[in-house]
Amino acid sequence: MNEQLHRKALRLSALVYTTISAVLALAFLMAATALGYPITARVGGTVWVFLLSMIVSMPLVTSYFKRRYRGE
């Protein structure tokens, strides 16, 4: 895979895993708000869920796009 394609794969995968993590964090925030949790728990929990979601989705999505751009 050439450098340009490599960068493109990284950019696209960053967009995707960030979106996935944001969606999960948002879902957590909405659930916590709906259930009446205090504001610190809601904010802290949302940040933690976002962080862990990023860590989980980042390698999966990145390797998926790298494979795709390599044409496998």
Binding site: A41, G45, V49, V56
Partner: peptide, 15 residues
Amino acid sequence: LGVHALALLVFVFWF
């Protein structure tokens, strides 16, 4: 990866 996913699940469950 599995551990981070598990940590996420553990957090959501106890929360």
